[in-house]
Design a protein around this nucleic acid. Sequence first.
DNA 1: ACATTTTATGATCTATGGATCATAATATGA
DNA 2: TCATATTATGATCCATAGATCATAAAATGT
Lengths: 83, 83
Amino acid sequence: MSLIARSPKNLGHAIREARKAAGLSQGELAARSGLWQETISKVENGHAGTKLETVFELLAALDLELVARARSKGSASDFEDLF
Amino acid sequence: MSLIARSPKNLGHAIREARKAAGLSQGELAARSGLWQETISKVENGHAGTKLETVFELLAALDLELVARARSKGSASDFEDLF
DNA sequence: ACATTTTATGATCTATGGATCATAATATGA
DNA sequence: TCATATTATGATCCATAGATCATAAAATGT
């Protein structure tokens, strides 16, 4: 599974999906990432002000990485928070 | 060109490469993204505290998107800031 | 080497992130 | 339905991001 992100909301959604796929609760992910459950809640809900550092800590705990690439045409459903 | 990022530094590097590939100076990118040249300098240099919002504004101005995916094995040279 | 970009640094100010605790709202499962 | 687990919200505090201006340092071109 790989999810496209063009906004904090997309990325938060991707993180939530990955966390669920790993069978973890926000609390468990908090424990393994060194962050707080409350913070993870905000990130997953697409808080725009989240720090990059925080996002990468979460990605590392979920064994994910990001790839920056030219935008694809992409189907509308891939970017549900655009509308 | 698509660049793997596991840290703010990787991502900053990717943004710098994309900007150069587009033939833009930080000042020009600042103008088209609504940010400041100084801010872009910090982001490209991997400032960990950068806000997600800021990163996505830059990515949008460069017509880039992110993909979150499971970590690949990856050759060491892809993550030069790890050492 | 020199003039001209371009990029980095530094200071100030205001806004806000995340740690932290408490708790409310939801979801889940028996 | 009810008890329990999970997620969201809200407040406080401290640190720091980004806007903004000024300027230093570095890179580029001829």
